[in-house]
Design a protein around this nucleic acid. Sequence first.
DNA 1: AAAAAAATTTAGATTAACCTAAAAATTGAT
DNA 2: ATCAATTTTTAGGTTAATCTAAATTTTTTT
Lengths: 220, 220
Amino acid sequence: MQNSFTEENYLKIIHALSGREGLEVSTNALAESTSTRAASVTDMLRKLAEKGLIHYKKYQGVRLTESGEKVAINVIRKHRLWEVFLVEKLGFGWDEVHDIAEELEHIASDHLVERLDSFLGHPRFDPHGDPIPDAKGNLTEPDYLILTDVAIGEKVRMMGVLDHAPSFLQHLDRAGITLGCILEIKEINEYDKSASVQIGDKQTLFISLEVSKNLLVQRR
Amino acid sequence: MQNSFTEENYLKIIHALSGREGLEVSTNALAESTSTRAASVTDMLRKLAEKGLIHYKKYQGVRLTESGEKVAINVIRKHRLWEVFLVEKLGFGWDEVHDIAEELEHIASDHLVERLDSFLGHPRFDPHGDPIPDAKGNLTEPDYLILTDVAIGEKVRMMGVLDHAPSFLQHLDRAGITLGCILEIKEINEYDKSASVQIGDKQTLFISLEVSKNLLVQRR
DNA sequence: AAAAAAATTTAGATTAACCTAAAAATTGAT
DNA sequence: ATCAATTTTTAGGTTAATCTAAATTTTTTT
Ligand SMILES: [Mn+2]
Ligand SMILES: [Mn+2]
Ligand SMILES: [Mn+2]
Ligand SMILES: [Mn+2]
């Protein structure tokens, strides 16, 4: 039997919330992420456990099974490949593609995913810097730094974002911060903990702590 | 409020069954096409009428309203554009794309449809020769002939198919009959009403009446 | 114009995914 | 260790889309 959109969304969210350590995810955390009530989550958990997609013992939180993990990663693969398509081929901005990909990620055909992947040239990362699982389901999270962990004077390369909200991405666009650009922390301003950051070889701007916390970078 | 996948499918099917004359469609015809029971169709018709998408009087069949027609044509536009994408960009065969397009046609974003249309170069016809409605919702069915209406000795161009079943399309592939190719009726065989047809400037084959009835062609 | 047949609608259920309110279990704080 | 707070589950409903069986309306045939 096929998994419904709803089931796929639960699995994807459990994957995201359990992190790389595969920790237990709580009912309330799922209720929050799915915008439903805890009672509804409990119903769905019973169903997913029934189907062998999660490990679930009452009152103890959930983890994905091997089989649930496979489904979740496949959905993530499709989501990210479609985002690449939308940006690279159709010319959408990185701030416009998430919601459309939320729909496209549920299109079923495996044949389609593999052809799309070829058409796009087997991209390794999506437009937000997130890694794309390969066809076998291998997903390796690169370990980037958060900009707040970078010392004054260091030059780093912008590799991804933690916040995917359109408003955040548009803010980065206005600041001229794009994937791959070089950032240098000139100083940390005492007053509001903002950073003065040189972007590429262009001007230096104040970057709020809020923004720095959501920027993933790499030393070079 | 948004229309569900199910509602969109009903509207699309009502459009197809009512033909270019916009005739009334019966409950049973819809039950057949949707693979549901007549009682279920009646429920849905009440809902669609409620939403102003169809004209419906009990026991009298249904027609689309202006508003229902707009929705139906938009779904058809998306279906056919996605089919072009799958064949032209991803390299699928014309026999492989219908079921995938049945899913893709329900992706909501108007912005996406318009960008896809541009990316594909504003195609006028889908891989089966069916016309693609324009962005304003204009859909003009070209009036092709059916191959059975072509006289012996006439040369015609193959323009489309009436049957979209993969097995039929694969049969045409094996016979070398593709969209745009030239066909000449050499004779009609008395025994089984099959036609001897020359395909392009290649060999002459027997084409069964069953096949001829499903081929759309144009005089030249 | 009846009667018979066919088509359609109504009545009453079912399933998935949600809800609120109440009960039960776990966790945390004295 | 006990009590209070928090979390989670259970109980009992709702809505959309389906179903079967029965009732009703329309159509066709005698
Ligand atoms: Mn996304
Ligand atoms: Mn992304
Ligand atoms: Mn099709
Ligand atoms: Mn088609």
